[in-house]
């Protein structure tokens, strides 16, 4: 495993820890899109179907379990925890996320590496992950008040896939890995969707001002 891949995974883990910290310590999910969190549950559930059938490494298995358990528990907190769920911005989080699931699934049926259940679902998870942040970005844009934990959560989440891009370049060059267009293009789209957010995040950080996205 190269340094970009490890840094990417750690950033991903960090983003989830930041979100859990917000939920646990502030007992709040204000500014967090339940729609995006539900999409991540679907992403991990369809990608990690091989968890009990294919063993890569201890690291790999543990990380998969962590991503599955944390994504499920975040959704549980937002829907059912008696304090946390009252802080959910239901009226602002109106993105129709089902409209992302269907086209991603159709695309995975059409464009995949091999037409098997496992390969199509894995491909679907990559396409869906690329766009899963959209409800969250829309909610951020509607929020007048973005707290630091929410801003950092989205920043780390975006940085994770950006680091994976470097990992793929490294693997292609150094390890002579095969061409992997599906994850590469999905990852590129995923990172590009954050460009606008990154711009305002870094700008506010430099000026030491509170993060606010233009409507």
């Amino acid at each position: 495993m190269n340094v970009f891949r490890l840094a990417g995974d750690m950033t991903h883990l960090l983003s989830i820890m930041v979100l859990l910290l917000k939920i646990h310590s502030m007992k709040s999910c204000a500014g967090i899109s339940l729609k995006t969190q539900e999409l991540y549950v679907l992403v991990f559930a369809t990608r990690y179907l091989d968890i009990f059938t294919t063993y890569f490494s201890f690291y790999n298995t543990v990380m998969k379990i962590v991503f599955l358990v944390t994504s499920f528990s975040i959704v549980w907190y937002m829907r059912h925890h008696k304090v946390v769920r009252q802080t959910y911005d239901r009226d602002q989080d109106t993105f129709r996320h089902h409209l992302l699931v269907i086209p991603c699934f159709l695309l995975a049926l059409l464009i995949n590496h091999r037409f098997t259940v496992r390969e199509v679902l894995w491909t679907f998870s990559l396409y869906l992950e690329a766009v899963a942040i959209l409800p969250q970005l829309v909610l951020l844009q509607r929020s007048r008040n973005i707290d630091n934990l929410t801003g950092n959560y989205v920043f780390f989440l975006g940085a994770y896939r950006g680091l994976y891009l470097f990992n793929w370049i490294y693997r292609y060059m150094a390890e002579k890995s095969q061409l992997r267009w599906i994850p590469w293009i999905s990852g590129l789209v995923q990172t590009a969707l954050y460009a606008d957010f990154f711009y305002y995040y870094i700008k506010s950080w430099k000026k030491r001002e509170k993060l606010q996205l233009p409507a």
């Binding site: 490494s57 991503f67 590496h113 091999r114």
Partner: peptide, 10 residues
């Protein structure tokens, strides 16, 4: 048919 894509990433 093509081989499965490697899935050693997260």
């Amino acid at each position: 048919s093509a081989a499965e894509q490697p899935k050693d990433e997260l």
